[in-house]
Design a protein around this nucleic acid. Structure first.
Lengths: 268, 268
DNA sequence: TCAATCCGCATGTCCGGACAATGGGACTAT
DNA sequence: ATAGTCCCATTGTCCGGACATGCGGATTGA
């Protein structure tokens, strides 16, 4: 490049370099008449563009000011949209550089999901067999986990989860009384979490432990395994957004038919 | 105040009800001379107050406007501080009601952490024995997982992790060449993630699979187990913030000595 | 006594602007 | 060539204000 001598303090305007992706042109638009928040409309469109490859990994998003001007939005609104995608792990911001699409195939981060929903969305035709659905006095351990008084009663539900007709998980759950009524037919038609949401319970968080152990005689038989076979185990305590403990569960999985898969994000 | 009868449309000022926690008085302050962002100073103080019980679960935080005025900050700044704690699961906002501290004992959510750091912070005196530290040509599977060309070479590291002198995990890791140099002494002194961070790699996300299986003869011996004993397994692919794959690992754990424990938040 | 209605409160959304801080490239001097 | 310096682009932080929206309690009416 000949680089003509420039007068003092004069810089040549940066030319888009062939190797580097310039600002991507996208058809973005927002509907001010919609009740959907503007930042949400924008973040959804950006997410869809990433999903469909219209925004390629590594490409810059164009600076916020210009993007805001192009859409007729303010910068805070644009920033709010971008921030939500950064939180999802789809974008990375670098001060002085810009915002770019993350290369790797980011799926969804680990979320508090029900086994039933996971199987269903994976096309596994889940089925549930409710084996026990009663009310029992709590043991000291369960009382501690659920945070209820030691003499009280709780729901006890034992279910066998099948996929493609084969047993996959054996699940024992305890729930405080009065939160929701556990109808066996409903329990066989859907998952526990969906019932809780339908009952107006807003799930907030859960504490989980995943481990493994050898199958005992009875639990081996439940899952169609041999005694001593390895089992994948999960224990979970779930809280709603008021802080109440809404569920405690102990699950065992056949490891040849189920494993936990998820994506983690670094919180920085 | 004797509360004189008010004219039409006049409502008596709400008196703090004895049963409900009123707005909590806290000593909060920000230092405008500090380079630490104001919203971050505030969120840290709030988090510390929750941690130490000065903000009790269920108590209201006081409305944002008043809080901003008391601290001499603007509402957006206060909101940013509060939002970061909501994202951490420590606070819950309800429109028309206020922001309150979550009841349950929220620990930290699941983060992309190293086994070494976890053990160390739990006071388990972790030790590492590096068994293999070489460069090998990739197998097709590893090449696919790491996203490198099929003829190329990669680092291969095999380590045995001990806690209290007992074997707990056997870890095999593959890394692309050129990212960092793997010194065996350093690998025995700390964890792999810490080495990566020290080499200027910014971790972004990881894809994990947790399962279980019966131990084969050789892996049983490595962990001091019997053949056929249940093992907890984990596979992980880690990406940095530029989208590069920086590590692929296959780990096996003795389930009587290790399990995965974490907290999940519902993303709403 | 109970249901419908109204109203205030607190958060949710959005705007327009200002200055700071950082990363990288361009230029300069060695 | 190489190291150092300067400047610029872009995001980070912060402000003050405005209106919208949903929840809950108090009032009102049947």
């Amino acid at each position: 490049m000949p680089l003509p001598v420039h007068p003092a303090r004069g810089y040549a305007r940066a030319v888009p370099k062939p190797g580097v992706d310039p600002t991507v042109q996208l058809e973005l638009s927002v509907d001010r008449g919609s009740p959907v928040p503007l930042y949400f409309q924008l973040s959804q469109q950006l997410e869809a563009a990433i999903e469909h490859g219209r925004l390629t990994p590594g490409s810059l998003l164009g600076n916020e000011i210009e993007l805001a001007g192009r859409l007729g939005l303010s910068r805070p609104t644009v920033r709010q949209a971008i921030q939500s995608l950064v939180d999802k792990g789809l974008l990375v911001r670098r001060r002085g550089v810009g915002t770019q699409v993350v290369h790797s195939q980011v799926k969804r981060p680990l979320e508090l999901s029900s086994l039933y929903d996971d199987l269903e969305s994976a096309g596994h035709r889940p089925a549930t067999r409710v084996l026990v659905n009663t009310v029992v006095p709590v043991s000291p351990e369960i009382a501690a986990a659920l945070g209820v008084a030691e003499g009280s009663d709780v729901h006890r539900v034992e279910r066998l989860r099948l996929a493609h007709g084969e047993p996959m998980a054996y699940m024992t759950n305890y729930l405080p009384l009065g939160l929701l009524d556990l109808d066996t037919r409903q329990l066989e038609a859907t998952g526990l979490y969906r019932l809780m949401r339908a009952a107006g319970i807003t799930l907030h968080s859960a504490r989980q432990t995943i481990g493994a152990r050898a199958a005992g005689a009875t639990e081996a038989e439940r899952l169609g395994e041999e005694r001593g076979a390895p089992l994948l185990t999960m224990q979970r305590v779930t809280f709603d957004d008021t802080g109440r403990t809404v569920e405690f569960g102990t699950h065992t999985y056949r490891p040849d038919r189920y494993s936990f898969e998820f994506q983690l994000l670094v919180r920085s």
